[in-house]
Amino acid sequence: MSEHFQQLYEQNNDPWQVRQRWYEQRKRALLMASLPAPHYHHAFEPACGNGELTAALARRADCVTASDLSPAAVELTRKRVAGLPAGRVTVACQRVPGEWPAGAAFDLIVISEMAYYLNDDELDQLRANCVNSLALSGALVLCHWRRPINDGSQSADAIHASFDAVPQLNRIAHHEEADFLLDVWSLDPRSVAQHEGVTA
């Protein structure tokens, strides 16, 4: 699988046209608008691809840890965020969920367009990693394409349902379209309005 993605990014620096396609631009904007807090301390984005979402997250976080299993994608992400202040974004070659930042606590974790490539055991490990490294008031975001994909072993609906079934996670936002699912969970069940003390 890693060789497949390496070849994709070596042949094309934007294989899914995440920069050009309105679908991708709109989906990214919806994801960013769904984040329950205006700013985060430390965000984690595995499977960062060419870094378009990474750059958006860096505008909302003090620091972003990004990773991808493809060295070519890692290099593209580093180039994409090169103009940001030093230390704002750290990018590493990493195969999630087996490789996960050790000892880190994140107040934002974004799993986008990658979980369907995992087998059942890996999906279990991904859920456990997310729960164990998510700060109490942090947000866990999942966003996945719902149509059939090549080499995918999980459906978007099944992936999101499995996270929704985790007792510690409280779903605080849900967006569903024919093409994709977008969900946000937190260990804290309070809504955005409740966090700010808004009453009727």
Score class of each variant (00 low, 15 high):
187 L>M: 06
18 V>K: 05
45 E>W: 15
172 I>W: 06
80 R>N: 03
165 A>C: 08
181 L>D: 10
192 V>G: 08
82 A>T: 04
12 N>Y: 14
101 P>T: 09
82 A>Q: 07
7 Q>C: 13
173 A>Y: 10
47 A>R: 10
139 A>Q: 09
5 F>T: 00
93 C>Q: 14
69 L>W: 15
178 A>Y: 13
142 L>C: 06
102 A>P: 07
53 L>E: 04
47 A>D: 12
164 D>P: 05
191 S>T: 15
82 A>V: 04
161 A>E: 04
7 Q>H: 15
170 N>S: 13
110 V>Q: 00
6 Q>D: 10
162 S>I: 06
187 L>P: 06
198 V>F: 14
198 V>D: 05
148 P>W: 15
12 N>T: 07
33 A>C: 11
177 E>Y: 11
75 E>V: 00
155 S>I: 01
86 A>I: 06
18 V>P: 04
24 E>D: 05
152 G>N: 04
115 A>Y: 13
10 E>L: 12
140 L>D: 02
79 K>N: 10
149 I>K: 08
109 I>W: 11
104 A>V: 11
49 G>K: 02
180 F>M: 00
113 E>K: 02
79 K>T: 12
165 A>E: 10
51 G>A: 01
177 E>R: 05
92 A>G: 00
64 V>F: 02
91 V>I: 11
192 V>F: 14
61 A>N: 04
163 F>R: 02
172 I>S: 00
12 N>A: 07
47 A>S: 09
102 A>W: 13
118 L>N: 04
121 D>Q: 03
175 H>V: 05
118 L>K: 07
113 E>H: 04
82 A>H: 08
171 R>D: 06
86 A>K: 09
24 E>W: 12
153 S>A: 05
138 G>M: 09
164 D>Y: 08
71 P>V: 01
133 S>I: 00
44 F>C: 01
149 I>V: 11
63 C>Q: 14
107 D>N: 09
192 V>Y: 11
100 W>M: 01
151 D>K: 11
199 T>Y: 12
137 S>L: 10
16 W>V: 04
26 R>E: 07
9 Y>W: 15
176 E>R: 05
78 R>W: 08
194 Q>G: 09
197 G>Q: 12
4 H>G: 00
178 A>F: 11
50 N>S: 07
78 R>S: 01
115 A>T: 04
92 A>V: 01
156 A>H: 06
118 L>I: 07
157 D>V: 14
42 H>E: 09
70 S>R: 03
137 S>Q: 13
28 R>E: 03
52 E>P: 05
25 Q>D: 00
105 A>F: 14
54 T>S: 05
141 V>H: 04
70 S>A: 02
112 S>T: 03
73 A>F: 15
29 A>W: 15
99 E>Y: 04
108 L>K: 09
114 M>S: 11
159 I>Y: 07
193 A>I: 15
15 P>Q: 08
126 L>V: 06
97 P>W: 15
